[in-house]
């Protein structure tokens, strides 16, 4: 079967629509959970830390989801999967925004002098802030127009996602005091996704 007929039969448009709906639903749940826990006073003794941890973790999870699309496409031969990558990336940005806003507002009450000191003095905050700043141009250029205008440069620009991944993981490693189990898990997944891309890249060239 040629590629064009397979696309016709499987109706990728319907699949894309269904998967996008699923992603929206799944991505809203953690936010909804935070809101419910917040309004029922169930965020624990340190609610700000709870929100920071949760939104930071979800930003990282969506980053890993978006990185998994390309290898997944290759393995499953389902090229339509690419259509949901942008959505996953934007949800990473959304969680990163809530994460940063929680830090600026709920943690530091927009006390810019204290915030600046915290960012400059503490490597884990600095790398976290850098990771966030790098996501801004990616979110800003995540539309068809930017792709058309930037052409080859768009691809280069969006390779920043790897740098963001490394910085985000470093941010996580440096913030835990002693028990690095969770950062290890996320780092292994990240490394696995990079390795998968690298292998597939090699296979391609052959």
């Amino acid at each position: 079967m040629t590629r064009s007929t397979s696309i016709l039969f499987d109706s990728p448009v319907a699949k894309i629509r269904a998967l996008k709906a699923l992603i929206w639903l799944g991505a809203c749940l953690p936010l909804l959970r935070l809101l419910i826990l917040g309004f029922t006073d169930n965020l624990g003794a340190n609610p700000v830390e709870f929100i920071e941890r949760s939104t930071g973790t979800w930003a990282l999870v969506f980053l890993l989801f978006s990185l998994s699309i390309t290898p997944l496409r290759h393995w499953t031969q389902q090229s339509w999967l690419i259509a949901v990558r942008r959505l996953l990336g934007l949800w990473m940005f959304a969680y990163a925004c809530v994460h940063v806003l929680t830090y600026l507002w709920l943690d530091y009450s927009f006390d810019w002098a204290d915030i600046l000191k915290d960012v400059i003095k503490h490597p884990y905050v600095l790398v976290g802030a850098s990771a966030f700043l790098l996501t801004v141009p990616l979110a800003a250029t995540s539309n068809q127009r930017a792709i058309r205008v930037l052409k080859q440069r768009w691809k280069t620009l969006h390779q920043l996602v790897y740098v963001i991944g490394v910085l985000a993981l470093l941010h996580y490693w440096w913030l835990v005091k002693k028990d690095v189990t969770e950062p290890v898990i996320y780092s292994v997944v990240f490394a696995g996704l990079i390795a998968a891309r690298w292998r597939q890249g090699l296979n391609h060239r052959r």
């Binding site: 530091y108 204290d114 884990y124």
Partner: peptide
């Protein structure tokens, strides 16, 4: 004297609420 990771000039009081600041 700052800890390499945490600011020691201010603190969060547990139980003060979401919007209490530091």
């Amino acid at each position: 004297v700052d800890h390499p990771r945490w600011t020691q000039s201010s603190e969060k009081r547990i139980g003060a609420g979401l919007f209490a600041g530091r």
